[in-house]
Design a protein around this nucleic acid. Sequence first.
DNA 1: GAGTGGTCTAGACCACAAT
DNA 2: TTGTGGTCTAGACCACTCC
Lengths: 242, 242
Amino acid sequence: MTQQQQMVQVQQVPIFQRIKDFILAEIQSGRWKEGDVIPTEAALAQQFAVSRMTVNRAVRELSSEQVLHRIQGSGTYVAPQKYQATLVEIKSIADEIRARGHRHRSELHKLERCKAGEALALQFRLAAGQMLFHSVIVHFENEIPIQVEDRWVNPALAPDYMLQDFASVTPNEYLMHAAPLQGARYGIEALSAPREIAEMLAIDAKEPCLVLRRTTESGNRIASVATMWHPGARYRFAGSFG
Amino acid sequence: MTQQQQMVQVQQVPIFQRIKDFILAEIQSGRWKEGDVIPTEAALAQQFAVSRMTVNRAVRELSSEQVLHRIQGSGTYVAPQKYQATLVEIKSIADEIRARGHRHRSELHKLERCKAGEALALQFRLAAGQMLFHSVIVHFENEIPIQVEDRWVNPALAPDYMLQDFASVTPNEYLMHAAPLQGARYGIEALSAPREIAEMLAIDAKEPCLVLRRTTESGNRIASVATMWHPGARYRFAGSFG
DNA sequence: GAGTGGTCTAGACCACAAT
DNA sequence: TTGTGGTCTAGACCACTCC
């Protein structure tokens, strides 16, 4: 086993990683196809002359990466084709603007306490008539309006929301401290700008807007419901992978 | 150690998972803050009266989940605030429709070979004038048009593209077999529908559309450039996490 | 040099699946 | 019953950081 240690030292790449690479190569080459059983841990351990635990780590990690699928008592299989899914990552608007090296500024257009109507109460899973906080903020990138953030907040989870200085702290940043994010639901839509939104974004009414709606949860309660409007002509969600 | 095994049996939850839960609880409660050093593997092993390998697995998995950050020779730290990022997963349109229990049908509107113009050639990293395949397909959900898929394909990677029966196989499905996906770049925009698109989607021209542009790579070459148009009034990208 | 994480071993017992 | 994966141990040597 001291020999193994020396191999690691000389070869740099850990054994479990070399086993992962081997398995990936078999799959990439088509020798192991979708749904195929791959060799057992014991067989791979013998093949590579390593302990079963080392093989176990390689195979376990590939399972958690969705490359393999394991069934206790049965075997290890090549997982079905990777989902042809595109993951779009949407970051905090302020961070994103700063990451581009541009200047972020925000303008508070509205900050109020308000009774929840039926639709809102339903979204918050609260009784109608409950008090909610409501803010409307416009975010600027180099003085060009880029987002209208219309947000409703659950006072139970963020009691100091109305006291924040939203010129220096975005609602996102405050809420992350007040009510640690534990889950979210969201949707992206394309909608015509209503008049008030169009005015705040300095675009024509009816212009297409890219709209992100997001509901965030903290401790099984709804912390916040936000609708973010972006001018279609000036904004896109983008990213890459691979 | 037989005692440990019995504990596992009785308690159901593996020890490494209980250690993960413990660490997560310390962080969630605020007792361990962002940037703090957490106890060493040896200390946790003693605290839980388990072997270091078991602690190692717990901590290693939390590292790969971005909850902790490890520095060899230094220690294990609570990772910086989880990125306040929203991940939107965009699946294949046909799968998505079928997953909703609805009927998917597609109509081929165009299928041609075409010389690449300058802009397209640039996107494909090919010389202008190179031959490309071009298809325009409309996807229907329960007979309502839901997506116009305008796609350019690199013949070098998918030579049989023109021979496919796109009523039964979507371009996505074919391309996944012909040129295994290795990377992608994409963007989501909100645009007014041009006249041709509006006609295919059976909406008014200038109606807002949710547009996904995606470039896919396979083996360092560009396999395909697609633009997918969706009626803003009838379609959204949605998802959740947590 | 002392302490940390990174990796590996050669066993073990268990739950589960296939037979 | 046999074989598979799931978990765990009690050590070990190594690379790296920090003092």
